[in-house]
């Protein structure tokens, strides 16, 4: 039996199993926490820092996606400081790549764009970096536009954890980091890609898309992940 912890999120009494995270319990209770790297069904990496919360007694902010619940903890999800940081994180993503929402396949169906609207980001004070990034359209079904990649690594994880192909990984580091297939070979030449398309569906932006989709037509569906996980568990049981 997994012990159950009771604690507070934004003053609201909630409870969760000890192996659950603050994020999971917040979602369960309809408390909004923005996330980009996190997606239900994949291992959390705590990379995007959007779901950071304040926990009473700790002077450090904690990523809700990677923090287990504890008895009696008091979590604040939406202080002014957190809102400010979250907006800045989104601004960072906008200036780091070339997110031209207006001509993006995911326009209107993009998690980054949606969060910007939701959190009130109507411009950014940071400096647009206008990097020269590539587009790989070699694959006959899918394409990747690195200009729109926010390095959430959902594609890397879904490919390794769920599909088991590990076609994707991250190369380089820092601001030069980018996702690659195999040895940075054009996607079409990847020996390991199973063409399952899971990476496309979990991608929060228009970075990964079906080539058959025009601007604004790429609607993502990441909902299959919990289903796959559950069915796998049922079958293995």
């Amino acid at each position: 039996m997994m012990p159950v912890k009771t604690f507070k999120i934004d003053g609201q009494d909630v409870s969760g199993r000890e192996d659950e995270t603050i994020l999971e319990i917040a979602r369960e209770n309809d408390i909004f926490l923005p996330t980009l790297c996190n997606i239900a069904g994949l291992k959390p990496v705590g990379a995007c820092r959007l779901c950071m919360v304040e926990v009473a007694g700790s002077n450090k902010l904690l990523p809700a996606c990677a923090t287990r619940v504890q008895e009696g903890m008091e979590v604040t999800t939406n202080s002014e400081r957190l809102q400010k940081y979250r907006r800045m994180i989104l601004e960072m993503l906008f200036v780091e790549g070339n997110h031209i929402c207006s001509v993006c396949v995911a326009n209107g169906h993009c998690e980054l764009q949606w969060l910007a609207e939701k959190l009130g980001v109507d411009h950014t004070r940071l400096n647009y970096m206008f990097p020269a990034k590539e587009v790989d359209v070699s694959h006959y079904r899918y394409a990747i536009d690195h200009n729109r990649c926010i390095l959430c690594t959902r594609c890397v994880r879904v490919c390794a954890e769920i599909e088991g192909a590990h076609t994707w990984d991250v190369s380089g580091r820092g601001i030069e980091a980018k996702v690659v297939t195999d040895l940075n070979t054009p996607w079409a030449l990847s020996e390991t890609c199973t063409e399952c398309g899971k990476c496309v569906q979990v991608c929060p932006t228009g970075a990964l898309f079906k080539k058959s989709r025009a601007v604004g037509e790429m609607v993502k569906d990441g909902q299959f992940l919990p289903y796959l996980k559950t069915m796998r568990e049922v079958d293995n049981a």
């Binding site: 031209i100 001509v103 411009h123 647009y128």
Partner: peptide, 18 residues
């Protein structure tokens, strides 16, 4: 008042920036 994405982000014309 900055009206529209071009004024605010550079938008499509800024694609020439690379």
């Amino acid at each position: 008042l900055a009206l529209g994405d071009c004024a605010i982000t550079g938008n499509v014309p800024a694609m020439r920036n690379r």
